[in-house]
Each structure stands twice: as C-alpha cells, then as structure tokens.
Design a protein around this nucleic acid. Structure first.
Lengths: 224, 224
DNA sequence: ACACGTCGGGACGCAACCGTACCGTCGCTG
DNA sequence: CAGCGACGGTACGGTTGCGTCCCGACGTGT
C-alpha cells in the first residue's frame, strides 16, 4: 500500500526496448548454437553486447527467460486457408511447416527444446501450449473440414491423424535433415491425404487378415 | 619400438570389466537424466560409484566417451521378418520401433542426441552410422520386398517412403509422447501401407488438380 | 617369492558461470 | 531546474566441472 507514494518509473529509469530486443535475439541465437542444456546467461549477455544485470532485471532466472521468449516467439497463430479439398489443405499446411522448419534457428531450437521437455515439466507445459495445441488446432480444423465435406468419417481418430500429418515432414526436416525438393511436398500431401481417406472413410472397410503380435515389453533394446 | 621390452598388463594391472560396465550403465542413465549438454564426467563417476580416473583411463574425453558407448548400444542390427505383405511388414516394424521407443532411456536419449547432432558434426556422423543407415536399410529392404511383390512400383522414392514410415511413429512416441494403444499400430500400418501403395503404384495414376504454390523463403517465422 | 606395472581413489589448479551488491549516470517529473 | 529513482555496468564470493598428478594396493609373470 506504500506504493501510492512512489512515483512511476520514467526517463532513464525505464527499460530500454532496444536492449530487450537485443537480448531476445541473442537468446535465440545462443539457444541454436549451444542448446538449452549448455545455455549460459553470460554468453547471452556477451552476444547481445549487454551486461548480465540487464537480463536479470527483466527475467528472474534462466528457465523463466527461455520459457517466456520461446513462448512469445512460437505463439503466433497463423491462419490456414481453406482450399476446399483435403489434399489441398495438406499441401498448404506442409508448405507452412516446411518454411518454418527450414529456418536454421527453428530447425536447431525446436528439436532441442522438445528433447528438454521430456525431462523438464515446465518446458513440457510451455511447449504443450505454444506448439502442440497449435498444431492440434490446425490439424483439427483441417480434419474437421474434411469431415464436413464427407472426405473423412466422423469417427476419425484425431491423434492418429495428427501423427500421420505432422510426423513425416518433421522427421524429414528436423531429424533426418535431408534436403527436400519442392516437388516432394505435393507428393507427400497426396500420400497422406490418401492414407487418411482410406483409413477414415465413412464407408467402413475393415480388413482383417493379420493378427497383431502381442506386445512384449521388458526387453531392453539399449543394454542388458 | 621399446615396447618389445615391456610385458603385457596382467593381474591387477588390467581393466576390471565390472567397472567398465558400471560406467556404461551410469552414462546412459545420466544422459537420460540431464541430457548431452549438461552431461558431466563427475556425475557419471558418482552415479557409477567410481572415480573419474577410472573413466579417463578408458576414454580420452567426454565426446569420445559418449560416442563410443552410444554407438555400441545402438549398433545392434535386428532382423526384420518377411510376412509376405507390405502391411504385415510395416506392422512388425512398428512394433519393434514402439518397443524400442517406449523404453524411458531410449525415449529420452534419442531425441536429445538427434538435437545435439544438429550442431555437432561428430555426433551427426556417429548417429548417421548407427541409426539412420540402420533405419534406411530396414525400410529399404521392406520397400524392396514390396517392389519385388509388385505392391510398389520400381521407381518408389525411398527417402519419401522412409519419412512416411518412420515419421509418424517417431513423432507420436518420441516427440508428442502421447500414449499409444496396441490397436493403433495395425491401423497406422494400414494407413502407411495404403499411402505407399497409392503413391508408388506400378500403374501410374497421376492426379492433377491442385497447382503447387511457389515457395517463398525469406519470411522469418521466429522473429523479425 | 619378488618385483613389475597398472589399477582405483583422493586432491589439486584452472576455468566458467551463477546470482548479487554496489556504483556512477541520465532523463522525466514536479 | 533540481532531485528522485531505476537504469546499465563492473566486481565479487561461491559453486561446479574438467583434466592431471600422486599415492597405496594388488595380482600375475619370472
């Protein structure tokens, strides 16, 4: 309640936006260069041409810094145009994904943070919000449109659809890191669209013939 | 050439295998716990109940240690049975992959090392040998059989096929980390098999109708 | 039985980094 | 126009980890 007597910060006593921007940029570059595990505040400050204090004035600690900046950077929701066809929607989506994942910064940072999320609940929660729900929403509306059109059945498994849609391109661009020609995207879209249509068609066509082998967990593939 | 006068190490002067094993196991656990970036020799030694010297006697440095152990652990080639059908082969493969990726150690370590490989040429080369070529071989023989059977055309794009085969399951188990019921694997196999068959059928069925939007690289999805 | 030679362990010097306290500086507010 | 007050920067202890050196212990080959 004593805050009423204090006057608001003004003049030189206000955070300089240019320095904040420099820190944000430096953090992303440093994150790409050394990864979350090795990230050090000192290195970020050096790269930004700024003192550590400038960072600690804005963010309380290293996790807080990374989480806030990453959230802000990845939180942009981009609209997905409706082409009127499942395959067309997929191709648009693939182009957006490819453009994002081709950027060196994103291609370095995203897998790194996803790996970190596997052991860091805070990071997992943050990425869940800014990445996964975003993707699930996008894939969700994409699948939803296809259902409305009758291209897919209403009982389509959304999770499996997301895997099929996102998995191949993520693997290619973020994991395998092999070059991908522009021609491949339409082909991939065709393949995925066909797979979805066949597996989730309104007209059910179950095809038994191969009985699944029972799971045998307990064998260690890594080491005895 | 003075080595001729030296006699071979024997007795207590020979490396104790139990300690080597303890180091290997501790390294994997530590790698899963903190990741490659934060990995410290001291922590490995602590976890193994061993002194640092015991480690430095066996491996010269941290990268060398990790690369050697990871190579040894992941280098096991497992045979892929021939079910006589593309979909059956895929289902078997998916079960093998799922069993491997469901192990907490592997699920933590593999994405972490893949992310590290993006900035570490040594790591990239090692993983290339022990993981990617392994997968490419497996997928290659799987596709090769399908081609022999006539299920796929001889001009099948192997790279794209690998993406489609490996991507979804890797995304689901290693990135998204969502639970995957046993029923999902056969369904996924059906979807992928269908996608491959349609896109790579000997009877070419090209279907134009959507002209690809040109690539526009240069827009930064991360930050201006 | 002896001696050889490496073993594993503890200790050390060095370097990097975290988070904080203190300092002079500067521009708005009254 | 005067001074308040947070700014950005430097300096500082404390901690952690790397890689090395020295030490006593110990089992085999001569």
């Amino acid at each position: 309640m004593t805050t009423e007597k204090r006057r608001a910060p003004a003049g030189a006593a206000v955070l300089r936006g240019e320095i904040t921007t420099a820190i944000r940029r430096a953090l992303m570059q440093e994150l790409a260069a050394v990864g979350y595990g090795r990230l050090s505040i000192e290195a970020v400050a050096r790269r930004a041409g700024v003192s550590k204090t400038a960072i600690y004035r804005r963010w309380s600690s290293k996790p807080q810094l990374v989480l806030e900046i990453v959230s802000a950077a990845a939180g942009q929701r981009l609209p997905l145009p409706d082409t009127g066809d499942l395959r067309g929607d997929l191709e648009i989506l693939f182009m957006i994904m490819a453009r994002a994942l081709r950027h060196p910064l994103a291609a370095q940072i995203i897998p790194d943070l996803l790996a970190e999320a596997a052991r860091n609940p805070q990071m997992a929660q943050t990425l869940e919000q800014v990445l996964r729900t975003n993707q699930r929403d996008i894939a969700g509306q994409l699948v939803g449109r296809a259902i409305e059109r009758g291209q897919l059945g209403p009982d389509t498994d959304l999770d499996l659809a997301v895997d099929l849609i996102v998995g191949p391109l993520y693997w290619r661009l973020a994991v395998s890191r092999a070059p991908l020609s522009a021609d491949d995207l339409p082909r991939l879209a065709t393949m995925v669209a066909t797979a979805l249509e066949v597996a989730c068609q309104p007209t059910v066509r179950s095809e038994p013939g191969f009985q699944p082998t029972p799971m045998t967990p307990g064998v260690d593939p890594i080491h005895p």
